[in-house]
Each structure stands twice: as C-alpha cells, then as structure tokens.
Design a binder for these strands. Structure first.
Length: 506
RNA sequence: GACCUGGUAGCUCAGUUGGCUAGAGCAUCUGACUUUUAAUCCGAGGGUCGUGGGUUCGAGCCCCACCCGGGUCACCA
C-alpha cells in the first residue's frame, strides 16, 4: 500500500531525513553497531558503588521520548529489553566549535521512533533515575511515520494508549513497539513450545514435518482450503490435520513422533478460531490412551510451571491447577452428572427425545454419536472448569479410534476440557485395517446422508495400515488455545502475531 | 450467515433537538530552558467526519447501500 498524500508529520520527517543527509550523516548507515548492554539489565544492576563497571556502555534502540532542556536533552531509549533514559548534553556530543550534531541533529532532526546508537557512562540523576550520559551519538535508522505516543505517569496510569484492535492487528509492528506489554504473550508462547519440545525430546519422541499440501484432506472433519499445482495439474488441499501422515511414520517404525505446525480450516472466524492455527500431534507406539492421560498431566504441569512459575494459572479470575491427576469422566457419566439424564441405555430415538426436552433441535442427519456429542456440549461442557479428561466416546464420532476394551459401542478416546473449552483430543489409535476401512465406509454413508463434515477415505493410509501398525496412542493439542489459557487471553488474535483480517480498504 | 455496536486530526476521544469557520489532550511546527521524566512555558499549523447515494434552506448527526473493526449467536463433530 502506498500513500499518495503525506500527512503534515510525514512531510516533516522526510524533510528531516533530507537535512540529516545534507549534514553529511547517513541516516541508514551500513556498518554494525552491536550493543554491549540492554536497558533493563542496566536499570536492574546499576548502583553508584558499581559505577566503574558501567563507565563504557553501548546501547541501541528507538527513541521513544524526547525532552529538550536547552543545551541538554533527555531521551528515552527503548530496546528489546525495555526503556532507559539518556542524557545528552551539547558540549559532550559536540565538543568542538561545530555544534550541529546537537543543535540541529538531536534537537531538530531526531524524531520519536528513530533508531539510534549511543556510547557513554551510567549515572543516577538528581531525582534518582538511572541514566546513560551520552558521549557519542549515532543515527542507526530514520522513522518516517509518527508512532502513536503512549504516556504513562508515575503511578502507572496509561494515557492515549494505542488500543484500536484493528490497527493493533494490522500493524503488529506498531502495536508491539508502543505496547511492549504484549510482547510478553509471545515470549510465553515461545517458552511454552520450547518446553513441549524438550519434554518430548527427553522421552525420545522425535519432531517431524509432514506435508501441508495434501492430495486428500484426511484426519479430521472440516472444510479445507483448495489449491492447484500447475506442473502436476492436480488439485491439492491445505491440510486440515496431519494425523494420517504421522501414523504412516509409526507404521514406518518410529516409536514416537510429533509435529507442531499450522493447520488450515476454511470455517468461520471468531474469538477462538483463526483460519490457520497451530496444532501439535503426538503419536507413541505400544502405549494406550491411559498412558497418554498420564503423560498429558505431566506435560501440562511442566508447561504451566515454565510459563507462570508454578502449576497454577489465573485464567479470567479462575485459578486453574495443571498439577495432575485430572478427573477422568466418561462422557455418558458427564451427561448424567451435569445434565441429570442417564442416556447410557438409550438408542437414537430416545436421544432425540432428550435433546428436544433440553432445548436442542436435533438435525435429521445426526446419528447416535452426534446426538451424544450435542447433549454433552449443551449440558456438561461449560461446567468442566478444572482440567478434566472426558473419556469413552461413541464410535460414530471417532472413526480413527480403537473400540473400547470393555464398553460396547464406545471407543478409547479422551478430550481434555479446561474452563469449558476443549484443549486436547486423544485416542488409542485404531490399527486394524479392516475395521478402519469399515469406519471410513460408515463416514461415506454419513456423507451420503448429508453430513458435509464426514471424513474422506484415504486408500494409501489403509494400505499403510495393512502393512501393519503397532498399537499406538495419539493426541492433538491446540497450541493457540493452550497459549490463551497460559497467558490469560480470551481472543486467539492476541496470541497470534498476525491474525487473519479482511483486506484493508484503499 | 443473523443480530447488536463502532469508524471524526498521526494516536486517544468529545461533538446537544439537524444550524456560525467541526473541538480537546498528546503528537507536529516557532521560540525559551544544562538533571527533566505524562517535563514546563509562549505562539502556530493540521480534518475527504469510513465510502457512495438520498432527504433538507442546511447533514459529523436523519434515511439507503456498501467497505472495515469489535461483540453475541449460528457454524467449527
């Protein structure tokens, strides 16, 4: 996007840029200027007794405030760690006859948002502010647009905050520059992912990458983004899941694999849905869903500890404790306990009656499994606040899951609910290729009945199973939603650097 | 997709029952100031009121359509 008309302030800055060049200064110098110190560490470590250790410091960053006092000025420098005050006096940075560097460059041509590098010593001002006394001042990069100025008083009150969500998400670079508190969310997100990675590394579970462009969008039920490969002249789909590929790797002989990556679903957008989102899937051979529940408890309490310092997280005023063990609640029991109805002996017709009693309007295409899921969603889901494994789902809803070892009509599946939201979905994986084929065929029947979310049959995946897959358990965890929980955010947009937006008007 | 709500200066906002040249703070520009910190003080400039139509003597305000956000619901098993 290019602006045809410049605002008053943009014209001033371009004018300043030109004057800097005319003064013989390169506003975008090529040579390196690596900092020796960061703002926050100086502010944390400096004392007058240790002044000797801070006699020569070099800092870099953006000028975020400028208070000119005549022959001396105070600047606020913001680097990746925080802010620190700079003291710039005329005769220090321009000791000779020529005072241009101070009188013109610092006082007039230096704008808020410009990148500068400084060298000097640290001291404490009269009012007790740790400050860098600048001896050498260098331009590192000019800013041609005015940043929104956010002011804070000594009590921490914020004035004129840059709050418009549209502008914040469209210009995340501006948002994170002037609202550094939001950086913390992304730092925590990174910590969360790194914790998971080292946790799985330690257990010999290998990180892998599988195709994002898939000829068949298998492994989940959702509408895909469709695209086309020109050379092969074939349709391709952005993956909605990677499950079937990771299972092929279990077939191939890896005992444990996982992938953290983007999935793409062509569905609606809201506070908890972005068209592309990050999912982690883990598959471990020779284990079952009970083991996976144990592992999930350990993993999440380690993640919570890494992100917040202990196993508890305050989410929207509720203390969530990630220390295991979590409640394990069969879905039919969840409906009985939280909905007050025992549906364990009911058939499809009985469930339809219960649905209507509970204010749900069952669709004709809904089968037994969908009816159970709707009842659970309506009656129980919102009541599961602390981490809870809901287990043993109807087979219809779980075409990739092994049937339950004792309970007829159910499968060995669990979903983890926290604060009423699904955070993880896991199975004892179905590894019988004949049963798997039947399940796919049932899905085709559902599709024929009008269910446009029914799963697609993948012949190559079935061929892989026919070669033999060991007993395996697998789990999928939504990384964005986990990050939301761990950072106390209600909107997925706050945990994505660049959430999806409609195209900007010209 | 439905409903609710919003879009006014670079940013955050005010703008009365439709009525003088559309306002404020910060930011910007002039000037003063060598320990200030929401710096202060003097003076000044800056607007397609989201876009396009309509009603009216007159529209930021009323009506219609559209664009872009936010919220709720539906959808997302």
């Amino acid at each position: 996007m290019s602006d045809t008309t410049l605002t008053e302030q943009e014209i001033v800055r371009r004018d300043n840029l030109q004057k800097i060049e005319e003064a013989g200064i390169n506003p975008f110098p090529p040579e390196a200027f690596p900092p020796t110190h960061f703002a926050s560490e100086i502010k944390a470590d400096f004392t007058e007794e240790k002044a000797e250790a801070f006699k020569e410091v070099r800092l870099t960053g953006r000028v975020m405030n400028k208070r000119v006092m005549g022959k001396a000025s105070f600047l606020e420098l913001q680097d990746s760690s925080g802010r620190i005050q700079l003291y710039v006096s005329r005769d220090d940075i321009a000791p000779g006859e020529d005072k241009t560097l101070y009188n013109t460059v610092v006082k007039k041509l230096l704008d808020i948002g410009d990148f500068v590098g400084v060298e000097g010593f640290v001291f404490t001002t009269r009012v007790g502010e740790t400050t860098v006394h600048v001896k050498n001042f260098k331009f590192l990069g000019k800013s041609l647009r005015p940043l929104p100025i956010v002011k804070r008083d000594e009590d921490g009150n914020v004035y004129d905050a840059f709050t418009d969500p549209e502008l914040r998400y469209r210009m995340r670079y501006v948002d994170l520059t002037v609202n550094p508190q939001f950086r913390e969310i992304f730092v925590k997100r990174n910590k969360l992912v790194r914790t998971i990675q080292s946790f799985l590394d330690e257990r010999g579970i290998m990180e892998v990458e599988t195709p994002i462009l898939q000829p068949i969008h298998g492994g989940a039920a959702a509408r895909p983004f469709a695209t086309h490969h020109n050379t092969l002249d074939m349709p391709l789909f952005m993956r909605i899941a990677n499950e079937l590929y990771l299972k092929r790797l279990i077939v191939a002989g890896f005992d444990g694999v996982y992938e953290i990556g983007k999935m793409f679903r062509n569905e609606g957008m809201d506070r908890t849905h972005n068209p592309e989102f990050t999912m982690m899937e883990i598959y471990v051979a020779y284990q079952d869903y009970n083991w996976m529940m144990d592992m999930t408890e350990t993993l999440l309490s380690e993640v919570a500890t890494a992100v917040t310092g202990n196993t508890t997280v305050n989410y929207q005023g509720t203390e969530i404790d990630f220390a295991g063990p979590y409640a394990r609640l069969p879905i039919l029991d969840a409906i009985k306990i939280h909905g007050g109805v025992d549906v364990s002996e009911m058939d499809e017709e009985g469930l339809r009656v219960v649905c209507k009693e509970k204010g749900i309007h069952p669709d004709k295409t809904w089968g037994y499994g969908k009816l159970i899921d709707e009842l659970f969603g309506e009656l129980a889901e919102a009541k599961l606040i602390q981490p809870t494994f809901v287990t043993d789902y109807p087979v219809e809803m779980s075409p990739l899951t092994k049937k339950h070892r004792t309970k007829e009509g159910l499968v060995e599946r669990f979903e983890l609910f926290i604060k009423g939201k699904e955070v993880a979905n896991a199975y004892t994986e179905l590894n019988d290729p004949i049963v798997q084929r039947e399940r796919f065929e049932d899905q085709l029947k559902l599709a024929a009945r009008g269910d446009d979310e029914a799963m697609v049959l993948d012949e190559d995946f079935l061929r892989a199973l026919e070669y033999g897959m060991p007993p395996t358990t697998g789990i999928g965890i939504g990384i964005d939603r986990l990050t939301m929980l761990m950072t106390d955010q209600v909107s997925i947009q706050e945990v994505l650097f660049f959430p999806q937006m409609r195209k900007e008007g010209e």
